[in-house]
Computed example of a mutant assay.
Amino acid sequence: MLERKQLKDRTQVTFVLPADTPPGPVSVVGDFNDWRPGTHTLVPRKDGSRAVTVALPGKSVHYFRYLATGGCWFDEEQADGHDGINSRLHT
């Protein structure tokens, strides 16, 4: 799930996953972090989900995927679109 908060010139995007699906550490990897795994690792929240927030420039398009333990890549179903292998996000 994606949560968005519009700010003056940027958008805070929070990437959210259930606590145990998939199990183990998960990071969001995309063009906003040079596709580096581990840069934005999801952390537990009080409600039991896991999340990480990234501030992105307003009115821009970004591509990303999730990377779970064991090299398992997967997409965000609620993304603004998909380009084949990546999820697309409009801010």
Results as ranks from 00 to 15, higher is better:
27 S>W: 01
9 D>F: 06
17 L>N: 11
16 V>K: 06
15 F>S: 04
53 T>M: 04
40 H>C: 00
24 G>R: 05
23 P>S: 07
22 P>N: 13
36 R>D: 10
17 L>F: 13
29 V>T: 02
49 S>T: 14
41 T>V: 08
13 V>L: 07
33 N>P: 11
26 V>F: 03
46 K>L: 06
29 V>R: 00
15 F>T: 03
12 Q>K: 05
42 L>I: 02
18 P>E: 04
36 R>Q: 14
12 Q>H: 12
38 G>N: 00
25 P>M: 11
28 V>M: 00
22 P>Q: 13
35 W>F: 12
22 P>S: 08
20 D>M: 06
46 K>Q: 15
19 A>I: 15
13 V>Q: 09
42 L>A: 10
41 T>G: 01
51 A>S: 14
47 D>H: 09
23 P>L: 09
44 P>M: 02
52 V>N: 15
12 Q>G: 11
13 V>P: 05
15 F>L: 06
33 N>R: 09
9 D>H: 10
16 V>L: 11
43 V>Y: 03
53 T>L: 02
40 H>L: 00
23 P>W: 13
33 N>V: 06
46 K>A: 15
38 G>A: 03
15 F>M: 07
30 G>N: 11
30 G>T: 04
36 R>N: 08
9 D>M: 14
39 T>P: 09
23 P>A: 14
36 R>E: 06
37 P>K: 09
41 T>M: 02
27 S>E: 02
19 A>C: 12
23 P>F: 13
23 P>G: 06
30 G>I: 00
15 F>E: 04
46 K>F: 10
10 R>W: 11
50 R>I: 13
39 T>K: 13
35 W>Q: 08
53 T>F: 01
34 D>L: 14
14 T>L: 01
39 T>R: 14
37 P>I: 03
53 T>V: 14
45 R>T: 06
37 P>Y: 11
11 T>K: 12
44 P>Y: 08
10 R>E: 12
33 N>G: 12
19 A>F: 10
19 A>T: 04
29 V>W: 01
27 S>D: 05
15 F>G: 10
25 P>G: 13
34 D>G: 07
44 P>N: 05
14 T>C: 03
44 P>C: 07
20 D>E: 09
16 V>Q: 05
52 V>L: 15
26 V>I: 11
23 P>V: 13
53 T>R: 08
42 L>D: 01
47 D>Q: 12
12 Q>T: 10
12 Q>Y: 15
18 P>M: 09
16 V>W: 05
50 R>F: 07
33 N>L: 02
30 G>H: 02
48 G>Y: 09
32 F>H: 01
49 S>H: 13
35 W>C: 10
44 P>R: 07
25 P>I: 15
46 K>C: 04
49 S>P: 03
15 F>H: 06
51 A>E: 07
21 T>I: 10
34 D>R: 10
9 D>S: 14
35 W>H: 11
46 K>V: 15
16 V>C: 09
46 K>Y: 13
39 T>E: 10
47 D>K: 09
32 F>Q: 00
9 D>I: 15
28 V>I: 02
12 Q>F: 14
